[in-house]
Simulated assay, not measured.
Amino acid sequence: MSGTQTDTDPGETMRLAVERFRTQMESANRQFIQDRIDEIEAKNISTEKEKLDLMWYYWHDLGEKQSGTWLDDAPRDIARRVRQTENVSRLEDMKTIFHEHMDGIIPSTLVTDEWRHMFLDIVESVCNEAAEQDEDEDENFHIPRCDELGHFVKYANGVQDPDFRRSGICPFDPVPYFGIGDLTSPDGSTVQPQPPTAEFRERINEQLKDDILGDSFISGAVDEDLEVKVGFQTGLGCHREYDTWYSAYLYCRRDIDDDDSDRSHKDWAWRVVVFHADAVEPTPLYGRKPIFDSIPEFLDWYSSWLNHLDLDQVRKDVRCLYGDDDYCQ
Rank of each mutant, 00 (worst) to 15 (best):
R203F: 05
D210I: 07
F172D: 14
D173L: 14
S216D: 14
T184H: 10
Y177N: 14
F217H: 05
F172Y: 15
V175W: 06
P196D: 01
S216Y: 05
Q207R: 14
D210M: 09
A198M: 13
G220E: 06
T197Q: 14
P196F: 00
I212V: 15
V191P: 02
I180C: 04
I204G: 03
L183D: 06
T184E: 13
A221W: 06
G179W: 07
A198N: 13
P195Y: 00
I204V: 15
T197A: 09
R203V: 13
V175D: 06
L183P: 02
E199P: 05
Y177Q: 11
E199C: 08
N205H: 12
L183Y: 11
D211Y: 11
P174F: 02
P196T: 01
P186S: 13
F178P: 05
E202N: 12
D187H: 08
L208W: 01
N205F: 06
I212D: 01
S185R: 04
P186A: 15
Y177K: 13
P174A: 11
E206R: 10
T190R: 07
D215T: 12
E206Y: 03
L213P: 08
G179R: 08
G220Y: 02
P193W: 00
V175R: 05
T190I: 07
D210P: 02
E206S: 10
D215E: 11
I204R: 01
S185N: 13
Q207V: 04
G181S: 10
Q194I: 13
G181Q: 12
D173T: 13
Q192M: 13
V175N: 04
I212L: 03
R201Q: 12
D211Q: 13
V191M: 01
I212K: 01
T197V: 12
G214N: 11
R203I: 10
Q207T: 08
D187E: 09
I204M: 11
V175L: 03
S189M: 09
R201M: 03
F178W: 12
I212R: 02
A198R: 14
P193N: 00
P171F: 02
P171D: 15
I204C: 12
P195F: 00
P186F: 09
D187G: 03
P196R: 00
S189V: 06
P176M: 02
Y177V: 09
S216H: 08
G181E: 10
P195Q: 11
A221K: 11
P196G: 00
G179T: 12
S219Q: 12
K209G: 02
P196E: 00
E199W: 14
D173I: 11
L183N: 08
P193M: 00
F200E: 10
V191W: 00
G214A: 06
I218E: 05
I218H: 04
G181M: 05
P176L: 02
E202Y: 10
P171T: 12
D182Y: 11
D182L: 14
K209T: 06
Q194M: 13
Q194R: 15
S219F: 04
Q207H: 07
Q207N: 10
D187T: 03
Q207A: 09
P171Q: 13
Y177A: 12
S185F: 03
P193C: 00
D215G: 04
P176C: 06
F200V: 15
T190L: 03
K209L: 00
I218Q: 06
I180M: 09
G214W: 07
A198T: 15
S189C: 06
N205A: 05
I212Y: 01
S189D: 09
G214R: 12
G181T: 04
P186N: 10
Q207K: 14
R203W: 07
D211T: 09
